[in-house]
């Protein structure tokens, strides 16, 4: 048995039955990076006048690989959950005149955050989707939610989301176009920057140095 195969999590000792039956159980757990490995076992059978049955069963335990999620699955979940965000965004219109409008935009923000959390595991597949969702999320931050009172702004957001809810893969051009459309609609897709005047630890202010 090769000893340099960390994925081989369990083997059984060959068992010999009464009629020359040899059973070998191998359990192969796929590594998270799906590295291909070969496992081989050789059993020397003693000479026998009777028929000998050798059974070698290799079991692939695929939970680790499944945990990575397939591209088709992640795409399907993205489309399903984006539809919910579209509905929430579209529904904002009925509360656009309220003074506490920001509280109605929170579910949209929260749903985007939750979806980003899910897609974050497979950003290699859905990186462009994540970029667009972050841009939309940013437009709801730092008072940006106020712009969503405007039906035109909501329409822009919904149109961008509808694209995400209908395509199998989201391309880099889609992300670039979405950014331009949001910018043109007067939204702020860039992450709001918080300026912090407090000095970093160990850093002294200029006036302190000069004094």
């Amino acid at each position: 048995m090769a000893t340099n195969l960390p994925q081989l999590v369990s083997t059984s000792t060959p068992t010999t039955g009464d009629c020359g039956t040899v059973t070998i159980e191998l359990i192969q757990e796929l590594s998270a990076d799906l590295t291909a490995e070969t496992t081989e076992r050789t059993v020397v059978l003693p000479p026998s006048p009777y028929a000998t049955q050798v059974t070698a069963r290799a079991t692939v335990v695929s939970h680790a690989a499944i945990g990575l999620r397939s591209a088709a699955y992640v795409g399907a979940v993205r489309r399903t959950r984006i539809r919910k965000i579209i509905q929430l965004t579209g529904d904002l219109g009925s509360n656009a005149a309220r003074s506490d409008f920001h509280s109605y935009t929170f579910p949209v923000f929260d749903e985007i955050r939750s979806l980003l959390q899910f897609l974050g595991d497979r950003e290699d597949l859905e990186g462009n989707t994540c970029a667009i969702l972050r841009h939309i999320r940013n437009t709801l931050m730092d008072g940006g939610w106020n712009r969503y009172r405007d039906p035109g702004v909501r329409e822009v957001a919904v149109a961008i989301l509808q694209k995400l809810a209908s395509v199998e893969t989201v391309e880099p051009e889609d992300a670039a176009l979405a950014f331009r459309e949001m910018h043109a609609a007067g939204m702020s897709p860039s992450l709001p920057v918080t300026l912090d005047d407090a000095p970093e630890e160990g850093e002294q202010r200029e006036e302190e140095i000069s004094s």
Binding site: S62, A65, I66, R69, S70, A71, A72, Y73, A76, V77, T80
Partner: peptide
Amino acid sequence: LEMAHSEIVDRLYA
């Protein structure tokens, strides 16, 4: 569908 069985089941429920 290029999905694992558990993923297809998940989509069927969803």
